[in-house]
Design a protein around this nucleic acid. Structure first.
Length: 412
RNA sequence: GCGGCUUUGGUGAAGUGGUUAACACACUGGAUUGUGGCUCCAGCACGCGUGGGUUCAAGUCCCACAAGUCGCCCCA
């Protein structure tokens, strides 16, 4: 027996309705918001992610599925889709067609992590990238899309957390402030925090172990440059105008290097450790980092598995409804071929028709017809064949009558 | 990558180291041979995550591995 690799999962017919429902909602809301779908390769040159996500992030350092292909290239299964989307944007010169490109994607991502509910090695994200505009209205549009998407699926008890992580102009000063604050407290910090102190001091803020010990940590909001501060304040006004409630969280620091200014996260806390259902922000330096002209951009991604967990918890998932118009019951060997002909003809006429191929008893086939949800049964046995008629039965009322074969279609 | 817990059929599960692994649901077949429900009857784990070990005897004890799950980490 070979099982699916650890951290992967089959999406079975009984579950697939949920996925289809979510995908339908994604396409519908993206259409309303003016976002267009883009599909990028599942794997890319490893370098794309190293440069895009950041060399010393956890994702790049220890979570990537990297392999060498037969031509000696180092390739990586995409751990997220922002870098790929921007790569495609640059490679295909989408910037030449319009100044603002609004793109969305749905697909598998891969990270080598220890699996848990809501954290798979192959997982699915829906995400959005809005490339080419620095106006905070674009941030607000993207956040609103994320929020409306989740709430229109029916989810409640969501929490939007918002922060600004500054930009290359103001962040260095803030980092110094942080380092100054923590320098003499270094011995009290956890191992991770000590190693992050030099590399990425802002990450000290959202450390779960240490964050409660220090309540007077200097807050980035006070150290933002004028541009970042204005951007942040305008964004808040825009979200308020759109009726979206948020909570400012100065400790929200995202783990991917590319974020600037806006950072946000939507949480559904009953999911425990995997409560982040959506996350994103602005990354004004990333296009340039990937070799393009300096271009501002904002985006987010949501984890579809986590959304499904949340929907399950709130009992919002649909039952799979059978949609069978008619069930054909063939009795005896003689009936098999004409029955198959009816089956095929009716299907070609656009009807959803089923029949049993196991040669079972009438009783068994009736049971099957009943369970299938079909409204009508067409019974074809030796008597019917002799008279070139079929027994047409309404499974809801149990009425049945003998009708000529050519009348079947008009009765269904 | 670290720590805790869990692992019996399609499903939910019972099972003080000792005869043929309970029960329920689901599924399949049947109840005078062409009709759905109910009821009744029958069938349905050669094996208890995998591999070792202890023992006269292991689903029950020990070890290792695997998978799942919770927390950490990370993130969506």
């Amino acid at each position: 027996m070979i099982n699916a690799p650890r951290g992967t999962r089959d999406i079975l017919p009984r579950d697939v309705v949920e996925w289809q429902m979510i995908e339908r909602k994604i396409r519908e809301i993206c259409d309303r918001f003016g976002f267009e779908e883009i599909r990028t390769p599942i794997f890319e040159h490893t370098e794309l992610f190293q440069r895009g996500i950041g060399e010393n992030t956890d994702v790049v350092e220890k979570e990537m599925y990297t392999f060498e292909d037969r031509g000696g290239r180092s390739l990586t299964l995409r751990p997220e889709n922002t870098a790929s989307t921007l790569r495609a944007y640059l490679q295909n010169k989408l910037f030449a067609e319009k100044s603002l490109n609004k793109l969305f994607y749905i697909g598998s991502m891969f990270r080598y992590d220890r699996p848990q509910a809501g954290r798979m090695r192959e997982f699915h994200q829906f995400g959005v990238e809005s490339i080419g505009e620095m106006n905070p209205a674009v941030d607000a549009e993207v956040i609103t899309l994320a929020w409306d998407f989740l709430t229109e699926l029916g989810l409640t008890d969501l929490e939007l957390r918002l922060n600004s992580v500054g930009c290359p102009k103001c962040r260095p000063q803030y980092k110094e402030v942080i380092q100054k604050y923590f320098r003499d407290k270094l011995p009290e910090l956890c191992h991770d925090c000590q190693s992050r102190f030099d590399k990425n001091p802002m990450r000290l803020l959202d450390c779960k172990i240490d964050s409660d010990k220090f309540t007077d940590v200097p807050i980035i909001t006070y150290y933002l440059c004028d541009e970042c501060r204005n951007h942040f304040e305008t964004l808040q006004k825009l979200l308020e105008a759109g009726g979206i409630k948020f909570k400012i969280d100065p400790k929200l620091v995202r783990g991917l290097d590319y974020y600037t200014k806006t950072a946000f996260e939507i949480r559904y806390s009953p999911l425990g450790a995997q409560s982040a259902v959506a996350g994103g922000g602005r990354y004004d330096g990333l296009v340039e980092e990937l070799g393009g002209d300096s271009t501002p951009a904002v985006g987010f991604a949501t984890g579809i598995e986590r959304i499904i967990l949340a929907l399950e918890q709130q009992d919002l998932l649909l039952e799979k409804l059978p949609s069978i118009d008619c069930f054909i019951i063939a009795l005896g060997d003689l009936a098999q071929i004409p029955a198959f002909k009816f089956l095929t003809d009716l299907r070609r006429d656009g009807k959803s028709v089923a029949m049993d191929f196991a040669g079972r008893s009438m009783k068994a086939q009736m049971k099957q017809a009943s369970k299938s949800g079909a409204k009508f049964a067409v019974i074809l046995g030796e008597d019917e064949i002799r008279s070139n008629m079929v027994t047409f039965k309404n499974l809801e009322t149990s009425d049945q009558e003998l009708i000529p074969v050519e009348k079947i279609l008009e009765r269904i």
